[in-house]
């Protein structure tokens, strides 16, 4: 009886290294496939920070962006961009598509940019923004937890940050994440 037990035990202990390896391998597989550049936002489900940014001088719709502009009762999208940011250039057509397809107003937070460059960027690539606030010092960006442009936030009508997309928008992100998210948030 005990002999049989010890035989079974010996057979099982043989698999212990394999089990440890499998555990380690799966932990590494998951860990290494995460993107360390994507830092989850601390501001999800929090109210938008207090800020009041001046308008982009010389832009047609001459309106800045402030906390009050994000308490309209309707959903809003805030896109952090800059003319010096190459991915923003790539993202811009997709931002226009997001604005057109969702029907949700998109506001721009122009991050640490020169006004003339920012205007030239919009003149060249088109201007999907309802309002543009100029954050020349980058201070409002810090309050928004911005650490790299572009970043795109979805804001509820009550001024709560619902979602943050880090990095340039992609077709896949718009179709599979942002549009469904906006549709669901609108339904509520």
């Amino acid at each position: 009886m005990s002999e049989q037990n010890s035989v079974w035990r010996a057979r099982l202990t043989r698999f212990v290294p394999l089990a440890v390896f499998a555990l380690l391998a799966s932990a590494l597989y998951v860990g290494l496939s995460l993107n360390p550049k994507e830092i989850p936002s601390a501001l999800i489900d929090k109210p938008v920070p207090q800020f009041d940014l001046p308008a982009l001088v010389g832009r047609d719709a001459d309106s800045g962006l402030s906390t009050a502009d994000l308490h309209t009762g309707d959903l809003a999208i805030v896109n952090v961009w800059a003319s010096w940011c190459v991915p923003c250039r790539v993202e811009h057509p997709l931002l226009k598509r997001l604005a057109a397809q969702s029907g949700v107003p998109v506001h721009g937070l122009n991050y640490k940019d020169r006004p003339d460059n920012a205007r030239a960027f919009l003149d060249e690539l088109g201007d999907p923004f309802v309002r543009v606030g100029v954050d020349a010092s980058g201070r409002a960006g810090i309050d928004w937890g911005v650490y790299g442009v572009p970043e795109t936030f979805i804001i509820s009508g009550e001024g709560t940050i619902l979602h943050k997309h880090i990095g340039p928008l992609t077709d896949q992100a718009i179709d599979s994440i942002l549009l469904p998210f906006l549709a669901e948030a609108q339904g509520k």
Binding site: I39, P40, S41, A42, L43, P49, I142, D143, W144, G145, Y147
Partner: peptide, 8 residues
């Protein structure tokens, strides 16, 4: 800083 960027 944690308020803005998380414990990260």
């Amino acid at each position: 800083m944690v308020d803005r960027y998380g414990e990260w």
